[in-house]
Design a protein around this nucleic acid. Structure first.
Lengths: 153, 153
DNA sequence: TATTGTTATACTCTATAACTATA
DNA sequence: TATAGTTATAGAGTATAACAATA
């Protein structure tokens, strides 16, 4: 019998890990990691959101959010503002520098996307993207929210 | 401007992590993890290979291989045999139980594959698989060898 | 002296749970 | 009493380097 060739699920896992590693290498030059880029994106999309909201939407532990925001705030990329009505919450916004750096990260992502798909023609990329989007929707994966890799041992 | 929709690279990473998580949940019922399945598969494909070879081909640390093989040997799935010519090396082979369990893991993988791709018609699956295989080849990813996720922070 | 496998250890990461300040 | 955020800590996981046996 022939050695069974890897299926779609394995190929996705293999390619996905590879893509994530390469993207991580690109944003590392900006002093960022993929999760930090996700945090910046979320704050940019919903300025003023609280740390709890951020934790909920990205599936992060509140204590992890504290560490991330500490880092970003120390570097002048994000500001914390105490709520006026409820002084317990911290509202998060991007500074000008934060917005600029996010822009660079997005640009790095676009370059990464292009380099990663170089082997495919434009119409093939469109075809692949459509299939992946349908697959993602069928699994109810939120657009732009990475499930993380908490399972690896 | 519209919020930029996730590209192929992000979708691969997202779907790949999701697929890996679900596969991990399936083989957990067999007392296995995805890396352990990879170890069993490699020993099955190359009976008698050494721990060094195993570490090299799967990109694992030698000390990690020791831990994996300790586990598998204790459970009677794998046997270590000292080399006769070079008594330093440990040759690895699957026991009958190991072969059977690997069979169950492969069966779980097949069920996982089918469930994961349920949203796509057979011809769409073939199309998707072909595109992913070309992409994997273009990145020189070895068939069946997972790069791991050592980068996440 | 070099190599295979093993063990020990230092390091990082994660998750949990205490703690504070507000409500 | 409950909640947002913070801090502290214990546990797990990882990588590195020391080690024993053999070459």
């Amino acid at each position: 019998m022939a050695a069974e060739s890897p299926g779609i699920a394995f190929l996705l896992s293999q390619l996905g890990a590879h893509a994530a590693t390469q993207f991580g290498a690109r944003v590392e030059e900006l002093g960022l990691t993929p999760p930090l880029v996700g945090v910046l994106r979320m704050i940019s999309a919903q300025p003023g959101l609280s740390q709890q909201q951020l934790a909920g939407e990205l599936g992060l532990l509140p204590s992890k959010v504290v560490a991330f925001v500490d880092d970003l705030e120390r570097r002048g990329l994000v500001t914390r503002t105490r709520g006026t009505r409820d002084r317990r919450v911290q509202h998060l916004t991007l500074t000008t520098e934060g917005t600029e750096l996010l822009g660079e990260a997005i640009e790095a992502g676009a370059q990464h996307e292009d380099a990663f798909c170089q082997a495919l023609a434009p119409d093939e990329r469109a075809q692949l993207k459509a299939l992946l989007e349908r697959l993602a929707r069928s699994h109810e994966l939120a657009p732009g929210v990475h499930p993380g890799y908490r399972w690896i041992r």
